[in-house]
Design a protein around this nucleic acid. Structure first.
Length: 445
RNA sequence: UCGACAGUAGCUCAAUGGUGGAGCAUUCGGCUGUUAACCGAAGGGUUACAGGUUCAAGUCCUGUCUGUCGAGCCA
């Protein structure tokens, strides 16, 4: 007896097989039953004919509830009405467990209800599809990096200081050494890796204690950060472009079914091919001015609209949207006002007010998916920046060492895995892009 | 943290300030090709919580809690 997975069922036409799985749904029609069985790889409709099975089998199926675990035996046949669809003519069943009444019915539910039962919600076809796409994205990243000579370089999660000195971090007691913080980025350590191995990447969880309650934020999320020695900002953008094209095209190739189930308009993804638009911050501002999008600044008695958009300010959601809407590919915005960016970014040699950073904005309004830059490689400049940003100089001595001993131009970027999933799957909220989302108001299940 | 909106049966939602309903789920019955199957019946309620206005509050007012969306922060 062959034990087969539903995804491989078409290879077994007219053969008797066993499928191990769960009852997804069942319809009965007097002397006929149509149980739908899912096994993680797919869902298949079974057919139980009362006159063709033993009384015991018929009664067993009458008892089954949604999500009961079973082993079913039957013959694979073509669906009489649907082309290319297979079903299982069932002749035997072994009940592993009859499930208690299952809370998630095949009807509509609200988000809170589903998130409270996330451990069960994961079984639904939509969630299974998203997680398969997530798997494909991560596998593609690993393959791409490996094939292009990058070395996986795991960075620590406990860190003694605020890496970039900006966002709020989670803290915990670290023995008698005071406070430790959960890493918000592996970048600084990856820079050490790049000086040792040339091209490295880190892929792991990162943590932000910001109280961000939006459709694009998690408190715990996965980030992929490559770091390359002897790469300038333009090399960095070349890599981003090639990398993103590679990931999107492979997901399209290997996850068609999943994307279709999710209702994803795949033609928009098919379009994601090199070259991507590259615009400078200055050019982006021109777009904002042309479209008359003001800077909105909060004041004591409300908001104030400033136009034309002043040079030096960072972009908010409406600005990103306006910049992206004319393009059908990810847009790379580069060469930012230094004041709006992190301390470690290298200044443009031709204009010290400019930092050699790049943000990649996904199309269709999904927002920033990548932030990258060329790093400051000059010892004196970097030390000055650390002091200016009032960061603890002692904690950064090792980081400065990278500029003391054989400093070279180097660059890298950070890609938010969940934001990538969010975009490729066309999700409404990022909480569906990770098995167990952590947000400011949720830590369970 | 700020702003907008919401909270009614297990779930998704109705209900002019005047006797709280429906579909699904559950239980029982029917149906030999069903597709969120269908048909019939039954059970199921402290209307988030605390106050207030009113002859009368699910409905109006105040506060609290919870959630969703948006802003800021960012990947």
């Amino acid at each position: 007896m062959q034990r087969v997975s539903v995804s491989k069922i078409s290879d077994y036409t007219d053969q008797e097989v066993t499928i191990n799985g769960w009852l997804y749904n069942i319809r009965s029609s007097g002397k006929l039953m149509f149980p739908e069985i899912r096994d993680g790889s797919g869902i298949i409709q079974g057919v139980v004919v009362k006159s063709a099975v033993s009384e015991r089998v018929w009664e067993d199926f009458s008892k089954l509830t949604q999500e009961s675990s079973i082993k079913v035996k039957g013959t694979v046949s073509k669906h009489p009405k649907k082309e290319g669809v297979f079903e299982l003519q069932i002749n035997d069943v072994e009940i592993i467990q009859i499930a208690e009444p299952y809370p998630i019915t095949p009807k509509e539910h609200g988000v809170e209800f589903l998130m409270d039962r996330r451990h069960l919600w994961l079984r639904s076809p939509r969630q299974v599809s998203i997680l398969r796409v997530r798997n494909e994205i991560i596998q593609t990243i690993r393959d791409y990096m490996y094939d292009n000579g990058f070395i996986l370089f795991d960075t620590p999660i406990f860190t003694p200081n605020a890496c970039e000195g900006t966002s709020t971090l989670f803290s915990t007691e670290y023995f008698d050494m005071g406070k430790a913080y959960l890493s918000q980025s592996g970048q600084l350590y990856a820079e050490a890796g790049a000086m040792a191995l040339g091209k490295v990447y880190t892929l792991g969880p990162t943590f932000r204690a910001e109280n961000s309650m939006t459709r694009r934020h998690l408190t715990e999320f996965w980030m992929m950060e490559p770091e390359m020695a002897f790469y300038d900002i333009d090399d960095d953008m070349d890599l981003i472009e090639d990398f993103l094209e590679n990931v999107v095209q492979r997901v399209l190739k290997n996850c068609r079914k999943e994307l279709e189930l999710l209702g994803r308009n795949v033609s928009k993804l098919e379009n994601v091919k090199k070259p991507f638009p590259r615009i400078t911050y200055d050019e982006a501002i021109e777009i904002l001015i042309k479209k008359d999008i003001p800077l909105i600044r909060k004041t004591s008695n409300g908001e104030e609209q400033i136009r034309p958009f002043p040079w030096g300010e960072d972009f908010g959601a409406p600005h990103e949207e306006a910049i992206v809407e004319d393009f059908d590919k990810p847009v790379m915005v580069h060469r930012w006002p230094a004041e709006a960016k992190s301390f470690y970014m290298k200044r443009d040699p031709s204009n010290p007010k400019i930092a050699l950073g790049v943000d990649v904005l996904a199309p269709e309004g999904f927002g920033e998916i990548i932030g990258g830059s060329q790093r400051e490689d000059n010892f004196a400049e970097l030390e000055k920046r650390i002091i200016e940003h009032q960061l603890p100089l002692e904690e950064f001595q090792w980081f400065l060492d990278l500029r003391r001993y054989g400093s070279v131009p180097h660059s890298g970027f950070g890609l938010g895995i969940e934001r990538m999933v969010n975009w490729i799957c066309n999700l409404e909220n990022i909480r569906e892009a990770i098995p167990f989302a952590r947000r400011p108001n949720r830590i369970t299940p």
